[in-house]
Structure formats: C-alpha cells, structure tokens
Simulated assay, not measured.
Amino acid sequence: MTRMITRSYDNYDAAADVVQDLEDAGISSTDISVVGRDERAKDSNAAEGAGIGAGIGGAAGLLAGIGMLAIPGIGPVVAAGWLASTAAGAVAGAAAGGIVGSFTSAGVDEDEAHYYAETVRRGGTVVSVKAPDEHAATIEGIMDGAAPIDRESRTAQWRQEGWTRFDEKADPYKHPVV
C-alpha cells in the first residue's frame, strides 16, 4: 500500500537537501514532489523559470527538472514532480480550487492543504512523497530529521494573527517565514 508523506520547510534550500537525501536513500524521484518559493526565482519571468529551476536544483535528479509557475495568491514558485503537474493544472484552470485543489487532488486533507498552500505563500517549501509502506519509516526519518515546520504551532501562530485559511485572492506574502 502507498501513502502520502508531506512536510513543509521554512526555506527552499532545506527542502532541496531533503529531496537529495531521499534520492540518496533510493527513493525514486518519480515519487517525490516539491512546490515552494525561492528568493532566487522571485524576480524572474516564466521563460527564465526552467533555467533558474535547474540552477537552484543543483545536482538532485528530481530538482534538475524543476520549473517555475505563478500561482494566484502566492506568486512565482518553483515546482517539480507530480504535485507540480497538478499545480500547473490549477494555474491553467484545469483543477478546481487552485493550489488547495492541487494538494487535495493529490490526497492531502483539506485543512492540511490550506496549511501547505499558506506555507508556500509565506515563503516556505513543501515536499511530498508517495511512500510504499516498506519505505515509509525511512522517508519519515529523513523528512523529520531535517527539522520540518511544526504544523500545529505554526497554524496557532497564524491564527493569532487572524489567519483562517489560504486565500488565493490575497496578495503574495511579502515577509519570509521565520
């Protein structure tokens, strides 16, 4: 059986390291997906996106094919893998619900999808892996060992600031996640 393991990280570099570690552990790049904001891509246009994505991605096989999308409510993001395909569909209007719809269509609970979308909006990066049961513990160990964002404390912080859910009509967030 396969399940989805998803974690968010405060910055793209931390997520890229996780992806590299997953690939080094033998996890197929076809099972890994990334979507996030990277400051090196924020002032780029879509035509430059693929080149920037490759430069940002470095040696990781998955990230070498990374591209750039502009997502409503988030702005420019770098993305790779199956989640990038669903996000691209959302941008093109093929998936209902925008980026939240992309996450839910990938099997993420709606509340979690709003959290992950907001994480990306605020400058973070999400890594999601389609994990066969026999690899789940290894994948979780790698992902959790890289200090992912604690969802409960982060959403509690945002709720104190008035956040309730991701709003794709909001302006892209101007401050990095801390």
Rank of each mutant, 00 (worst) to 15 (best):
P176M: 00
D167N: 15
K42D: 13
D31V: 10
E110W: 11
D171K: 11
G53K: 02
G73E: 10
A70W: 01
T164Y: 05
G73N: 12
L62D: 06
Q157R: 15
R37H: 07
A131F: 06
G107W: 10
V18M: 00
S153D: 06
G124Q: 03
A90L: 07
D43F: 13
A94R: 01
D38G: 02
A137N: 12
D133C: 07
D10A: 12
L69Q: 01
A94Y: 08
K169Y: 15
E152D: 15
Y12L: 05
G65L: 11
V108N: 06
A79R: 04
M4V: 15
W163N: 08
D171L: 13
G107K: 03
V127P: 02
I139Y: 05
I71G: 00
M68G: 00
G89A: 09
S153G: 03
G53H: 04
M1S: 11
S33Q: 07
A147Q: 05
H135K: 08
G51A: 02
A46L: 11
G124D: 06
P72A: 15
G51W: 10
D150L: 12
D150A: 13
E140N: 08
T155H: 10
M68A: 08
E134S: 15
V34N: 01
D10F: 12
A96D: 12
L63C: 03
T2A: 08
M4S: 14
Y9T: 03
Y116V: 11
A131G: 00
G53R: 04
N11R: 04
V126D: 02
A88W: 12
P172Q: 07
G65W: 06
G55M: 07
G124T: 09
V18G: 01
G145A: 11
Y9V: 03
